[in-house]
Write a protein that binds this DNA or RNA. Structure first.
Length: 572
DNA sequence: GCCGTTTTCGGCCCGACTGTTTTCAGTCG
């Protein structure tokens, strides 16, 4: 089993945890954490990069030492220095730091004074009342630790973005009813449109803060008030979702929005840039000495450090600051750029709506075309079509298009990629369609090599236009297939095949890094919703958000083009 | 441990809230 990037990242994070407990140089600790983040952000396995003679030292935050450690991990699967460190410090201690309110110092203190190593030790000590006796700890801290250990057992998953959106809307509507409220905005990873959201960060402009804080913490769904201050409060809802509210003055609005939108890594990089110009950035503004020189809008903040506005979706410290500095930010795709949807089902197979209703919904989206891509016969559970079924499908759409005016329904199929890489319908049938989306549905747990070969084989077929949901992952439920995306993309580019960004909220597959990779490798992307109902077509906005996170412009995405250009591009 | 448009050494982002501290350390984001 080759070493995955997550394995390297996890070893570096473990190093950071243990060094931190050991009270090592905090910047050294940070170096390990930064490296872990860099590695897990990479679109392809580090092992492959090494095999291709790429130097890890070219990566940001990776120097000579860490590059050697990476090589060691790739070759041996372990890091000798971590093994040594684990002789000095009990490795289980790092897990204790995941308890809310426990950081390296307290974990070390608990270990030294009470011999606490495991979560069970911690719980027992808290129940016995042993912790409150320790210097620096008290009754309240002990209570919090006891509660935190308990709460940790059923820690909530990160919410899919679309669910976070619902919660955010509810909370914004509630806060808008607070006395003296002037403006409420959602920041954080939600605003950056990350595929999952861990907590909600809400910013508030109001006349007086205390009544807003009272209103907020009195919400009927609040399970626990974690903290409540003059300008900042945190609660946990009964659903387990954490919500932070911060009250900010108007003159600081832009600086605060920037600050609380993050990502943390992006903010650190921007503040560092500010330092170089003798400026200081915090959530209240941009300061030269004591003088506030910017902060009312985010544009002001960026302008103060000589940068153009950077859209939230790009703020991950993945090169956007450098690109902005060089005036090389991508002109990001928008929902308005989309001219049609290329993956949808009707009730002929497993969809819920008729062709007519799907078209009506697509027209409402402002589209010029919609592809109906029914399942093929192998997907029996969905009532997939055989050759005869496809003939009926084609006839139905031809008939519909005769009276559809300026709107066109495209004849597509979602063709199953069989275990051996063959397609689930004969070529002479496939030839009668406008285009084909080819997807893996079964045998999802083949080895990485076999899965990759399978998809490459499918792409050999001249009728394969689009690879549907290329990694098969279901967010939070099913991991991606083990495919070598580098090879898939290379082949897609060579064969003029497109990769789907499936916009369904459970999938969002390609992910953001894959989109970025497609852009860099000049592979065409389509954004499709895989709609099974009329309302599913609205998932397009999630797909577009993901594409923006992956730096895609309209020109990178096939279904921003006119029908003529689209069909021409499919012929290869 | 990384890094360099004043640097190969000496820096490394910044502030709110809490609890136990009587002036601040720890944690968090």
């Amino acid at each position: 089993m080759p070493v995955q990037n997550v394995d390297i990242a996890s070893i570096f994070n473990q190093m950071a945890d243990l060094l931190e407990i050991q009270d090592a140089n905090p910047f050294r600790v940070r170096a390990y954490r930064n490296a872990a983040r860099t590695i897990s952000d990479l679109p392809r396995p580090v092992g492959d990069m090494l095999a291709d003679n790429e130097d890890p030292q070219d990566l940001p935050g990776i120097g000579k030492d860490l590059a050697e450690k990476i090589e060691e991990i790739v070759q041996t699967g372990r890091l000798a220095q971590l093994d040594e460190l684990e002789q000095e410090i009990a490795p289980e201690l790092s897990a204790l730091m995941t308890v809310e309110g426990l950081g390296p110092k307290r974990v070390q203190a608990l270990h030294a004074a009470l011999g606490i190593r495991t979560m069970d030790d911690l719980q027992q000590a808290a129940e016995k009342g042993a912790i409150r006796e320790l210097g620096g700890f008290g009754a309240k801290t002990e209570d919090k630790i006891r509660e935190a250990v308990k709460a940790r057992r059923d820690e909530p998953e990160r919410l899919k973005w679309i669910l976070a959106e619902q919660r955010a809307r509810d909370m914004v509507a509630y806060l808008e009813k607070a006395p003296g409220i002037q403006r409420v905005e959602v920041a954080g990873s939600f605003r950056r449109c990350k595929e999952t959201v861990g907590d909600l960060d809400l910013l508030v402009i109001c006349r007086k803060a205390p009544p807003v804080m009272d209103h907020f913490t009195a919400h009927e769904d609040v399970d626990e008030v974690v903290s409540k201050g003059r300008t900042r409060s945190t609660v946990v809802l009964k659903t387990g979702l954490q919500v932070d509210v911060r009250v900010i003055p108007k003159v600081s609005y832009g600086a605060a929005l920037h600050y609380f939108t993050g990502s943390k890594a992006h903010n650190v990089a921007v503040r560092k840039r500010a330092q170089g110009k003798d400026l200081k950035i915090n959530e209240y503004g941009v300061f030269r000495g004591d003088e506030r020189i910017a902060g009312r809008s985010e544009e002001d903040v960026y302008r103060a450090v000589d940068l153009p506005y950077i859209p939230p979706e790009l703020r991950e410290d993945r090169g956007e600051i450098e690109a902005a500095g060089n005036d090389a930010l991508p002109d990001l795709i928008t929902l308005e750029d989309m001219r049609g949807d290329l993956h949808a089902h009707t009730k002929v197979t497993d969809g819920k709506a008729s062709l007519e209703d799907m078209v009506a919904s697509a027209r409402k989206q402002g589209y010029a075309y919609l592809a109906i891509t029914e399942h093929s016969k192998r997907v029996t559970m969905a009532g997939g079509l055989d050759a005869q079924g496809v003939a009926g499908h084609i006839a139905r759409i031809d008939r519909f298009n005769q009276s559809s005016g300026d709107f066109t329904v495209l004849k597509g199929m979602e063709v199953d990629i069989l275990k051996d890489g063959g397609l689930d319908l004969p070529d002479e049938i496939l030839a009668q369609l406008d285009f084909r989306v080819c997807s893996v549905h079964y045998h999802q747990n083949l080895s990485g090599d076999r899965q990759t070969e399978r998809i490459l084989k499918a792409m050999q077929n001249p009728y394969c236009n689009i690879i549907g949901h290329p990694t098969g992952r279901l967010i939070g439920e099913r991991p991606p297939y083990e495919v070598d995306m580098q090879r898939i993309m290379k082949a897609a580019r060579d064969k003029g095949c497109f990769l789907e960004l499936n916009a369904h909220p459970d999938r969002l597959d390609l992910n953001d890094r894959h989109c970025r990779m497609a852009r860099d490798m000049e592979v065409g992307v389509v954004i499709s919703t895989d709609a099974h109902s009329t309302t599913d077509l609205e998932f397009m906005r999630l797909g577009v958000a993901q594409a923006r996170r992956g730096w895609l412009s309209a020109s990178d995405v096939l279904n921003t083009r006119s029908l003529e250009d689209l069909l021409a591009a499919m012929k290869h």
